[in-house]
């Protein structure tokens, strides 16, 4: 690894000042499970590494109207937290399908999002939940819908000096469901071949029929950024969930994917899997307990 300067500021202000000073040559450090690997391989050679680990504000996880999930909260903490397990089981389940126990006790949700890998597992369910990114700069703050946070593979919307402070997630209403399914080669320590998150606000329209008031379908690992399948959402929104509609929506979702061939799978397989994963989750909604 190339030598670098190491900073451990205690406040977000200090951290963003140092990061702004170093510009593209500075890197924030959270769990380091993405950053250190790149540095050890020589892919990244920052002159300054700024640890966020002393900044208490980044570690908070609070429910006040909506869930404020500090960027520095680890995947392990999400799995263990009462809020996630109670109100946002999809987050706990997603975290438990990422990496392995040791990595999860270092890896953070903010790191996963900022790293902006097309296959980042936290992104699809958070986008499906309607999350927003809370961003702090040296002397400004801004809030961005999470789906606009991803710019390209490995690229997020932050400018030098900006830090992702927290994720805001609206409290789910009755009849709201959210799930994420990740297809992987192994049961642990694996990156998604494809992933699909589905959220829906349901109402009973007749005895056994569910109406889809609102819906989000978010695709992971099949495009440069996590991507909503908007045409698939369109034909479901405001309509009753029927098998035919679900089949059609799954097909549309597959057509909205832009997968590539790589060491994890071919574009053909990925597209095929988007259809299967979407269909399965939508079918499960037909019998969701209301």
């Amino acid at each position: 690894m190339k030598p670098f300067e190491f900073f451990k500021p205690a406040t977000i202000g200090d951290a963003s000042k140092i990061l702004a000073d170093y510009g593209r040559e500075g890197r924030a450090l959270a769990g380091g499970t993405d950053l250190l690997i790149r540095m050890k391989r020589g892919q990244w050679t920052p002159r300054a590494v700024v640890s966020l680990n002393r900044i208490a504000a980044l570690r908070a996880m609070e429910m006040n109207g909506e869930l404020q999930l500090g960027a520095r909260v680890t995947l392990g903490e999400i799995i263990r937290s009462a809020e996630a397990r109670g109100q946002f089981p999809v987050l706990a389940r997603t975290a438990s399908k990422m990496a392995g126990v040791q990595v999860r006790s270092l890896a953070t949700v903010g790191g996963n999002l900022c790293n902006a890998s097309p296959s980042a597992d936290m992104a699809p369910p958070l986008i499906a939940l309607g999350a927003r990114a809370d961003i702090a700069g040296r002397d400004h703050e801004r809030i961005l819908p999470l789906e606009d946070f991803f710019v390209g593979p490995g690229q997020n919307a932050l400018v030098p000096g900006e830090i992702l402070r927290a994720i805001f997630i609206p409290r789910p209403a009755d009849g709201f469901f959210c799930s994420y399914v990740k297809l992987e080669h192994r049961e642990a320590m694996d990156i998604a071949i494809a992933g699909v998150a589905v959220s829906a606000q349901l109402a009973k329209s007749a005895a056994e029929i569910r109406n889809c008031l609102d819906v989000r379908i978010v695709l992971g690992a099949v495009a440069p950024v996590p991507r909503r399948a908007k045409r698939a959402e369109e034909i479901l929104r405001g309509n009753d969930l029927t098998r035919e509609r679900i089949q059609e929506a799954a097909r549309l979702a597959a057509s909205e994917a832009q997968p590539i061939d790589d060491v994890r799978g071919s574009a053909w397989y990925r597209r095929q899997m988007i259809e299967v994963l979407t269909r399965r989750q939508l079918l499960a909604l037909m019998t969701a307990p209301l």
Partner: peptide
Amino acid sequence: LDYRVPTALD
């Protein structure tokens, strides 16, 4: 990561 030896869970 991409040369996949089965884990205990597999």
